[in-house]
Amino acid sequence: MNCQEFESVLPDYLESGHTSEQQAHLSSCSSCAGLVADLNFISATARQLQDAEEPSPAVWNALEIQLRREGLIRDIPIREVVPACSSSLLDFFRRRRTAWLVPVAAALVIAAGVKLYRPFGAGDTNPVARAVAPAPETPANSGEDERVLSTVAARFPAQQANYRKNMEDANSYIRDAEQSIKNDPNDVYSQELLINAYEQKQMIYDLAVDRTGEQ
C-alpha cells in the first residue's frame, strides 16, 4: 500500500479501525503516520477546548467574519471541502458548527506568533519594528476612586489634591501597561508592569482608608 491508497481509505481507518495492511503502511511511512496523529490531535484538542471554555458566539462570529473577509473560508458545504474526512469527524464538526474554528484559530495564532517573534539579544544591532498603538485619552477616575477621594477630601482637605494626582498617576500607569499588553498579549513583562501599577493603586486606597478610618 502506498500513500495515495492509504489516504483513500483514511476515513475508514479513522472510523472503524485498521487492517494489517494499513497498519503496516502506517508503521513504515512517517508522513501518513504524522497525518493520522495530526487529525487525532486536532479532534481531541477541539473537544477539550470546546468543553473547557466556550467563547461567546460573538467571538466566533467575529473570527468567522474576519476569516471570510480574508478569503480563508468560503460558503461551501463541509462534505465538499473534506470529502475524505471521516464521518466521525464530520459528525463532530456538524454537531458543533464552529468547532473547526478552534484549530484554525490556533494555527493562525501560532503562525502569527512565529512570524512576529524576534528574540532580542544584547548583541543585536538592527532595530525591530514594533507597532505601538497610541494610548487612549486619559479617562476620569472611576466611581470607586472618586468615592475614596471624597472621603479623603472630607477628612483631610489639604491632602485631596495630593491623593487625586497620585490616583491619576496610578491610573495612567495601568492604562499604559494595558495598552502594552494589547500590543503584545504574550509580553509577560508588560503584565508585570500592570501588576505593579495595580499594586500602586491598592497602596493609595490603603493609605486613604487607613488615614480616614483611624481618626
Binding site: 512576529l116 517573534y117 524576534r118 528574540p119 532580542f120 539579544g121 544584547a122 548583541g123 543585536d124 544591532t125 538592527n126 532595530p127 525591530v128 514594533r130 503584545d184 509580553d187 509577560v188 513583562y189
Partner: peptide, 19 residues
C-alpha cells in the same frame, strides 16, 4: 560588557538588554 542572553520579547535596540 555583559555576556549577552536572549530575551523573550520584542524590543528595539537601545530599549532593552539582557546579559
Amino acid at each position: 560588557s555583559l555576556e549577552p542572553k536572549h530575551t523573550p520579547f520584542v524590543a528595539a535596540v537601545g530599549s532593552a538588554f539582557h546579559g
